[in-house]
Simulated scan of single mutants.
Amino acid sequence: MAEPGQGPIVAELGRPETPQETAARKAKNSREYRERKTVSNLVYALVACVAVVVVIVLAVPRGDQPLHPDIDVPAIAAQAQAGSDGPLAVPDLPDGWSANAAELRRSQTDGITAWYTGYLTPSDEFIGLYQGLDANATWSAELLARTLATGTVQIDGVDWTIYDNRDSTDDLGNARYGLVTEAGSTVFVLVGTATDAEFATLAAAIADTVQAQQ
């Protein structure tokens, strides 16, 4: 046993610890205790934050509205029809398609007005439909990032010029693939990132409108 006034026997030393060793031991124990408390507090804080997030997620009401609202293209086209002598393209598309835009647009460079509708396809890609009123080749070239034609295709009796830029390393925005056809003074441009089959579906859906302009 340690003598009165002496510190406890240190097993490793076989003697009472000195006052300095006692102070060092207590300081070490105090430091280790604070470190354990800090880690515990961090764990408690993390658990509390996760609990709050879960409560918020469960409390927020979720409706049935889609992430991308489906625009009522026929209704908007009916309002915009006054700006066009010919019928505006309002394609009847199968399930899985949705419209995210429909409006008349006026080019800032040449003043050409176009009926524009944007579509999200079943493969979650995009096609923009432009119907240029009294348009020209310069106007359509701008939409296609001034890329070159790569072929032609006939879809439901309408001949389209193909602009396939999918292998290009240039930043062409949405002009990865395009179809262009002229009908009288109207130029139709389909441009976007969708598959060939989806472009063909949209082109077929407006074939009657294109032929009515010829």
Rank of each mutant, 00 (worst) to 15 (best):
A77V: 08
L120Y: 08
H68F: 12
D70F: 00
L120R: 14
A11V: 09
I56D: 05
L148M: 09
G7E: 09
G132F: 01
A137I: 08
K37Q: 14
A23N: 04
V47E: 03
A102I: 04
E12G: 15
I9P: 08
A99Q: 01
S98V: 09
D170L: 11
L148S: 14
Q79G: 00
I162V: 13
N174E: 11
G151H: 11
G7D: 05
V153T: 14
V54S: 10
D85L: 06
L67E: 13
V50K: 09
G132V: 00
A102V: 07
T181E: 02
L13R: 13
T18Y: 14
R146V: 12
Q81V: 04
A23I: 01
T193G: 06
G96D: 09
V73K: 05
G151E: 11
S140E: 04
V47L: 15
T161C: 02
T169G: 12
D110A: 05
A82W: 03
D164K: 12
Q65I: 11
A141V: 05
V189Q: 02
R105T: 05
L67V: 09
N174L: 14
W115N: 00
L144P: 10
L93W: 07
N165M: 09
S185F: 10
T181G: 03
W139M: 14
G5V: 07
V180Q: 05
D171L: 15
A207R: 00
W160K: 03
L104H: 01
S123K: 13
A78Q: 11
V191Q: 02
G5W: 04
A149R: 13
T18H: 12
Q65Y: 13
I112F: 06
Q65H: 13
N29V: 09
V50D: 12
G118D: 03
P8M: 07
Y177W: 09
G178R: 10
A24W: 09
A200P: 05
T209C: 04
A80Q: 14
N29W: 06
Q211A: 10
P91D: 00
P122E: 08
F126K: 13
L13K: 15
P19T: 08
T38E: 12
Y163K: 05
Q131C: 03
V43M: 10
A200Q: 15
V57W: 11
D124T: 08
V57Y: 07
S140A: 03
L133H: 14
L42A: 07
V57P: 02
D164F: 10
R176C: 03
Q79D: 13
V57R: 14
M1E: 11
S168T: 15
W115T: 03
A77Q: 04
Q154T: 15
R146E: 11
R105V: 10
P8T: 08
D159G: 00
E12M: 13
D95R: 07
T18N: 06
S168E: 15
L129W: 02
S40R: 06
T150I: 07
A75F: 00
Q20S: 12
